[in-house]
Amino acid sequence: MAVIFARRVLCLFRGTAMNYWLTQLFNGFSYGALIFLLAMGLSLIFGVMQVINVTHGTYFLVGTYIGLSILTWTGNFYLAILGGGLVIALVGIFIERFFLRRLRGNDLGQVLITFGFVLLLQDAILLIWGPDPKLMGEPKSISFTAHIGSFTFPSYRLFVIVVAAAVAAGLWLFENKTKFGSAVRAAVDDVEMASGMGVNVPLVFTVVFGLGSFLAGLGGVLSGPWLGLQYGLDLEILPYAFVVVIVGGMGSLKGAILASLLVGLVDNFGKGFFPDLAYFTLFLPMAVILAVRPQGLFGRTL
């Protein structure tokens, strides 16, 4: 194994090595950015509400479809991104308010019901949009292949990185500079304590769930011109988000950012060096972190 690895690394350093590393770094970064949008919501929801929201990947995919419909009606891509996020936020709030809230304290019931919603929403996709794969066009202004020297990269991925960075900055401001944000942070640390301090916990839950779902929907629409719309994508992308949440620590913004980038890069270089163990290279760091630091890199202690 080590020999193969060494040989591969050597190969890569020869020839167009510099280019290769740059391209792969950029790819890993951009994919990490997309995963961040999906994983951040999952992480927040878990951190605050202690709900393992298996439906999250499906929110992402339904968001993409809704974004496509909005794009078809209005022709405005940016409207589609916002609209997809908002509709999914409403769906999330609905599910939180009428189902998950009734099951507070029943961890198992909550996770089971979120899986029920995975199946329900999947069938809804089949019913409303059909099983045909679909593609979403991105605006011409962000659709070109940029060249810097001999290094080429798709500009759309750059756009995704920019959006993810803006979202991360926004979340940081929200958590650190607003009163409600500090309530959310308090709830991540300890719900009971926060409640004792006068935080309106049900409201925090609704907002967090809505925000998390919004991010999933928004990320979903953003993924449209990149990954395409394909029934079944939800469960293919969900494991990535879970790895991020576990590695980064549940509820931690900093953790989610770092872990997303890590996952993007490990996924990229893992596929290059050990194509046969593509998922294993992704899950192994996760298992190691679970073993030595079950709360993740930046999670609060269990």
Partner: peptide, 26 residues
């Protein structure tokens, strides 16, 4: 090492490891 909902999460994550092996260890 974990209990409650963390236990759920960790068992879930560990199971992904086995799935990853089954799926990719050709």
């Amino acid at each position: 090492r974990a209990t409650g909902v963390y236990f759920l999460m960790i068992t879930f994550a560990l199971a992904m490891l086995i799935w990853g092996l089954a799926y990719r260890w050709n």
